[in-house]
Design a protein around this nucleic acid. Structure first.
Lengths: 213, 213
DNA sequence: AAATCTCTTGGTCAATTGACCAAGTCATGC
DNA sequence: GCATGACTTGGTCAATTGACCAAGAGATTT
């Protein structure tokens, strides 16, 4: 009923679609269900978007930055590598448990995107961002605590993404929070064991910009 | 045209559906597509199965044991824990790269099953079997090489499942075999570092810490 | 060979869904 | 105040899909 500009209407429909998805899954977010959630008629949809795929694409794009901003804050006040890594992983994990539906939809979107030639690139981009985010966290930990990773950061970053992704998927299936957190702590310990002191022991090459000290 | 007993006809349709799925995805395996693949008309389908969900359930059931028999053989001739763990993971990994489509469908089935109240239990069972399989491999490694895991086997098993699951999903997205194998080796080293010589006989040299790639 | 049961065929039906439109309504600038 | 264009409505259309059936064909039994 109200008369709002196109941009706002689109955002409203995107919110509505996202609400339906997190509640009932990607497939449930039909054009009709989305419009019903937004309280508008179906004609509005095709006035705002070219097609359902068009809308899905915009949702996926909007998701990419939404996932990153998590763990950096958690490692600020850590004095030990093991603690820092575990707190960083836990910071992400709290997001998973706080909004399980959203993460479940994320897997549905990823799996669906892989079957579409058009959207395959979006899934690839998503995981590329994950790797970048993991690398950033690893660099921050190393710089903050004065350690060096005794293993290529690219490899470590892929391990981190694998860990959070695997843990999340498994948790969505069996909802065993205790088991997930136990495994998470174990992984944190394993990762921390890869860190070696950097400052005193030997000459260290911090390829990225020096941060503290 | 040929006249074959019901059981065989069902198996034939299940094979056909699986063929369509691994080629074009779970959603592509409609009743029509499945019948076309099998070379029969649609009426046969509902003569053999109550519904499409009925068939999907049988496919899922048939899948459960299909996934387990992998890594045990690979650790038989290993003399070092690190080698044994890596070879076990690699044995599974070869299966992933050999039949990527099958594993992709596995994720589609899992994700879809989680949205259905009826099938949710199937996904749970599937991951329960994964955990059992991982535990078996871990026990075999420990027994074969005379070591003890310095961490609860349940936690380690969940780590193993997380690793193979996370690696596989990431690989399906970006098809970066080299990165996946590098991360796999790193994980293997981390896991091997959790093994300590067993109290009984410690001829085996496991004194070193994690050796990295 | 007749009866009977096991398959198989080709087609139909209802429901869902994405796409789309012709005709309205309403605010805003001139 | 009125033209303009942004916004909305309710409905329609074609395509896909799961479900289902009545009739027939072939094998098996009696």
């Amino acid at each position: 009923m109200p008369r709002i500009p196109l941009a706002e209407r689109r955002a409203q429909l995107l919110d509505a679609a996202w609400a339906v998805m997190t509640r009932s899954g990607l497939a449930a977010a039909t054009t009709r269900a989305t419009c019903a959630e937004a309280g508008v008629s179906q004609g509005v949809f095709h006035y705002c978007f070219d097609s359902r795929d068009d809308m899905l694409r915009e949702i996926a794009v909007r998701l990419v930055p939404m996932q990153i901003t998590a763990a950096d804050a958690a490692i600020a006040d850590a004095s030990d590598v093991a603690v820092a890594v575990e707190q960083a992983l836990l910071a992400y994990w709290d997001l998973v448990e706080a909004d399980l539906g959203a993460h479940q939809v994320l897997y549905e979107i990823t799996v669906a995107a892989l079957r579409s030639d058009d959207s395959h690139e979006i899934a690839r981009l998503q995981y590329h961002r994950y790797l970048d985010g993991a690398r950033d966290v690893l660099d921050t930990v190393a710089a903050t605590l004065g350690v060096r990773w005794h293993r290529p950061v690219d490899v470590l970053a892929r391990q981190v993404v694998t860990i959070v992704d695997g843990l999340t998927l498994h948790y969505i299936v069996d909802l065993d929070s205790a088991a997930a957190r136990a495994a998470l702590s174990a992984f944190a310990a394993d990762l921390a064991a890869v860190a070696v002191p950097s400052a005193a022991a030997s000459d260290v090459d911090t390829s990225k910009g020096a941060k503290n000290v």
